[in-house]
Every structure is written in C-alpha cells, then in structure tokens.
Computed example of a mutant assay.
Amino acid sequence: MEAIVFEEYGGPEVLRLTTADEPHAGPGQVRLRVRAAGVNPLDHKIRGGAMREVFPTEFPAILGSEASGVVDEVGEGVTGLAAGDEVFGFMETGAYAAYALASVVARKPGELGWEEAAALPVAGETADRVLNQLAVKNGETLLLHGAAGAVGSAAVQLAVARGVTVIGTASPGNHDYLRALGAIPVAYGDGLTDRVRAVAPKGVDAVFDAAGKGALPASIELRGGTPDRIVTIADPTAAEYGVAFSRGGDRDASALAGYARPVAEGGLRVPVARSFPLADAAAAHAESEAGHVRGKLVLLP
C-alpha cells in the first residue's frame, strides 16, 4: 500500500511516499480504506523528535492517529460493523496510508464529509478531556493558547457552552474567527501577560495550552505563580514547570458518535483549513509547523 514513512527524526523532508506492508485486522479491530487522515501539531513534534521522551518512535514509522474511511476488513469479535460501513475514529496504525487499523470508531453521519469526519476525533476528545481535567465551570475564566486550531476551536465552543469565559490566544488574523466562536481574542508573544490582564483583571481560573509555543511561564504568572490548573497537550517542557501534560484518555465509540452529531447539524465547528494529497504530507507538515492554521489540515490518500 502507499504510505508516508519516516526513518529518522528531522524536518518535513524526512517524510516520503513509499510502499509499505498492508496491515490486517486483528481481534477487536477493523481495517479502514482511508479516505481522509487528520494532521495534528503533535505529528510534526513527533517527527522532529521534540516528543521522543513522551512518544518514543520505532522506525520506520507512519504518523497519523485519526482518520475516516470505509471498513473493508472486520476482525474476530467485532460486532455491529461490516465491510462497506463508513466510519471515523482513532487509528492504531498510522493513518497517513491507504489502510489503517482501528478498534474505536463510530459510524459517519451522512451529513458529515470525509474531511470533516477525519478532523473530529482528536479535536473533540482532547478538548473534552482537558476541560474535564481542568474542571472548568460556569462563571470561570479560561485562558486557551492556540485557540484557533482544531483542538482550540472545539475547546472554545465546549467551554463557552459550559458558561465559561474564554480568552483565546491567536494571531491577529484569527481574532474575528475567535469572536465568532464566543472567545475573547488576544495576540500571543511578548506582552501576553499584560494583554490578558487587560481583559481579565481578576485573573484566570485555568489555562489550557494547545499550542506548545513557550507560554507556560506566562501562564504560571497569570495563575498567581502556581502551575495548578494548567494543562498542556503540546509543550514537552511541562515537567520543568510542574505543569500537567495530558497525553490522552479513554477513547470511546459512543463519545465519538456524540461529537459527530452536533458537527453534522452545524452546532459545533471543527473547520478544515486545507486538504492535501497524501504525497504532499511534507507540505502539510511545513504549514502546520509554521502555525496560524485555522482548524485542521487533512491528507487525502
């Protein structure tokens, strides 16, 4: 099968389109013919070696943890799914490929396109998990770094639905977008603490770092000097500051289905910023690594 493989840590150029052995469904698994695969910032951090302590990589490796596609093999013990079913979910083998294996998938609603479905699993699960970990509630203020990305977009909407005031960091070009989602936008970079204090003079109750761009010291300062109620999903220096790093939780097919319905009905937005042919995975990584992406980048095998 065609797949994007890398055999060493490095820049986007280490990703190459090649032929790899096809995986086959084992007990409890289905195999998908991949129609779309999500590209996440974590992918380029793994590829570059920044996350080697948290996510060690065995080479050669295929990236990609989420996809949508058509079931074409069903493993022993799987019930309720059959060849030809359209599904989306979390992949157990790399999704940057023609085929991938999964044990946690949900049926794709007909109203949800392949690309939108592939953009949903990581964004929905991560946003929901971290908000629960932070225990944010009605009346509180959340500072969200990387608010315009796919995870950030989902987190803004889910937090606002809880009655939380969200201050979202993003580049100025994404500020109107964040306002439309219900967040108060601020620019990241030098002077961040002063800008946040200007819109939240009483301080922030919690911090969700979905960007991993060195904002932990400022976050701790804004939390009164404590790392309490700060969670990052993207900064490998978290332990140095005593900040919690959230790696992933229990993945549940019913929760996936629950994320899909409001997206299909237009009540939750996880926008697809751009789609690339599978062969252009390096270009997708370069764009992801440059930042400023509004929503999710997607690969199309």
Score class of each variant (00 low, 15 high):
V130A: 11
E58W: 06
R52Q: 04
F55P: 10
T79Q: 13
G110Q: 14
E140N: 11
R129T: 13
A135L: 13
E58K: 14
W114L: 14
E73C: 09
E115A: 07
A119C: 07
T126S: 15
V105D: 00
V122Q: 08
A102L: 00
G80T: 00
A118P: 03
F90A: 07
R52E: 13
A98I: 01
A117V: 07
A127P: 07
N138D: 13
A127F: 00
E53V: 02
V104Q: 08
G124W: 04
P121K: 04
D128L: 14
A117C: 03
A82W: 01
V122G: 09
G139R: 07
M91S: 15
E66G: 06
K137C: 10
A50L: 15
I62F: 08
A123V: 06
M51A: 12
V54C: 06
P121W: 11
V71Y: 05
F55T: 13
A100C: 14
D128K: 05
A98G: 12
R107A: 14
V74T: 11
V54Q: 13
V71M: 12
H44L: 07
L81G: 03
N132K: 15
K137I: 08
T79R: 14
G124L: 03
G89K: 01
A98N: 05
G89E: 01
N132W: 09
S103I: 08
